[in-house]
Design a protein around this nucleic acid. Structure first.
Lengths: 338, 338
DNA sequence: TACGCTAACGCAATCGATTGCAAAAGCAAG
DNA sequence: CTTGCTTTTGCAATCGATTGCGTTAGCGTA
């Protein structure tokens, strides 16, 4: 039975010989319509292949049954697919959101010029927003959160932050990783990561605290800027090696960076973990599979995603929801010896 | 400057002292409005932080600037995140779609009961649809494609198919993989995969052709049903091993299945590739990193995604676009010896 | 000054649903 | 047959944009 014409609610009303109001209420299971009539109308609508037009519904109801997921890091094409961490986070979020009956809209940030967040918010394309990673947009987030409530950010908890965030205890996680390296007798530990990103700077804080607690002097030459992509991270590691600065361990602020470093070390004929220990961050799936298997600070993304979405729905319901911090766990594998 | 109140186009009209029509046209860069006035109105709108309400716009224009991406395989929660192949495909598609100025809506198929596809289509939430994987929905796709044109499917090309599809030459890919195993002297090659899925049944066809061409008798006991998840695939491999059926190679219809098989073989003390050669399909990122590195049939997902989206946009523009087939490539690594 | 023509602009209908409010229908009691 | 109440139902306004069509403004020419 082809019923091609995109039929409207008025058509169903005609079929059922009632008014549109009644059809609308029947489809919404409104008890104002007696149960048997409701069922009857629903049957007629289903049989005709009628589906409510969401554009119209959204306009009238002022809600879209959609959650927007934003990756501010995604300046360049390919970012999304290049980082397993973001990918996994997205998958978890999508699961949590869809099980609650909402759709997931992936938001692309074409440019982070003034008001990019406002532009997304005011487009009214979604009922709530999850921002994955603060990037360098702390101010923008703070400003937006002042007037827009259904917003939750994955990232570090910063001072003077008004928006709701969920994230790993970055300081503690880094501290644990570096403590472990120190316990193995390592003394010259390189730090690979972009200090400009809030989460990374928190991990740097943990790194410094561990060194200080161990009474080890900090050598700025061991702090190397490294982006999240494999290629740039590889370059960064290579430069560290070629600089001649002596080091016996690397604390990489992401697993991708760690894997790139391991590869660069291997290329230079340096044995891991024999000569240099390496620790990563995130514990992505590949970490356990690499050679040698990577020691890493595990973030519980399943729990993180669940928390984010829980808080978001609370905020959408008008309740206030506080930020949350997850406890990281150091997963020890062969890459750091011991 | 807080400009909280969600202002509407009428407000901007008031600010600019013109009618809404003029504002609408100015924001749309309609040449009916003189250039300088256009710029002026755009400036005023931007300064006021005004953003067009997309729900209203979508209703009136009957388009949403959004592409829906559907994974019919995703019956259960967790499916999306469990399969690296789908994840990578999604990332590539998202990149292609967003660079064309469209948003990406991830569609969850809550139930594949009658009319699930029609429900998505008629919701008018998107201007076009990408379906990743045919699952067992060949009929539903054929039916929908009869009246809905902006639809492209990733999957195998089946006989009697009216919808537009893009996919790897599954028969050829499988043929190449099995030919390689045969060239290595392997004679009892197990096949792991779900024959119910169209793409897999095509790979089975390639497997059979290779055997036939080599004059090898086919043993049905070597064909093992295996789902795409690691756990179930591991179980399947374990059962094959314990069944006592002799075999010297495995052609796995996905890399996840291959990796699970390798692990099951290792657990049983069987050496790969010494005693058993293993070949996978997809060549996902982990394939190169596993121990031993996995030989696999590579699908060019970047090109696949680009093709899908190209065809989809052609169809959205009303043009007709034919199905396309991509040529797979066998990437030889250590898992099959040689 | 009057006329003709084009360039700018605004009125009001429209997209397809939801919902407040009032009217109609149904029913029981007086 | 009224009256008074509850249950059903439908009218018409509304959400916030876009756009066909008619009107006004502006300018050059006779």
């Amino acid at each position: 039975m082809a019923e091609d014409g995109p039929l409207k609610m008025a058509d169903v009303a005609r079929l059922a010989k009632v008014s549109m109001s009644t059809v609308s209420r029947a489809l919404a299971d409104n008890p104002l319509i007696p149960e048997d009539r409701r069922r009857e109308i629903q049957r007629i609508a289903a049989e005709a292949g009628y589906v409510i037009n969401q554009s119209a519904r959204s306009l009238r109801m002022r809600k879209t049954q959609t959650i927007g997921v934003v990756f501010p890091l995604g300046h360049d094409v390919g970012q999304l697919i290049s980082d397993p961490f973001f990918i996994e986070m997205f998958g978890r979020l999508a699961d949590e959101i869809t099980t609650r009956g909402y759709q997931v809209l992936l938001c692309r940030v074409t440019d982070t010029s003034d008001g990019w967040l406002n532009r997304i918010i005011q487009s009214h394309r979604q009922d709530g927003l999850v921002i994955v990673g603060q990037s360098d947009q702390h101010e923008a987030l703070n400003h937006a959160a002042a007037s827009y409530h259904p917003l939750v950010v994955w990232g570090g908890h910063l001072s003077g932050q008004v928006y709701c965030s969920v994230g790993t205890d970055n300081i503690g996680g880094a501290r644990r990783a570096v403590d472990h390296l120190l316990a193995l007798g390592r003394k010259r530990i390189a730090f690979l990561g972009m200090l400009e990103l809030p989460e990374i700077s928190l991990r740097y804080e943990g790194y410094m605290r561990a060194l200080r607690a161990a009474g080890i002097e900090h050598d700025p030459a061991l702090v190397i800027p490294a982006h999240f992509s494999f290629e740039t991270a590889y370059e960064a590691a290579r430069e560290l090696i070629e600089s001649g600065t002596p080091f016996d361990a690397i604390f990489a602020t992401s697993d991708i960076i760690a894997l790139a470093a391991i590869q660069a070390l291997a290329a230079a004929g340096i044995d891991v973990p024999g000569q240099v220990s390496v620790v990563g961050f995130d514990d992505i799936a590949i970490a356990a599979q690499s050679t040698p298997p990577l020691t890493s600070v595990q973030q519980d993304l399943a729990k993180g995603a669940r928390t984010i979405v829980d808080l978001l729905f609370k905020r959408m319901a008008g309740e206030d929801a506080p930020s949350a911090t997850l406890l990281p766990k150091l997963v020890v594998r062969k890459s750091c010896g011991g």
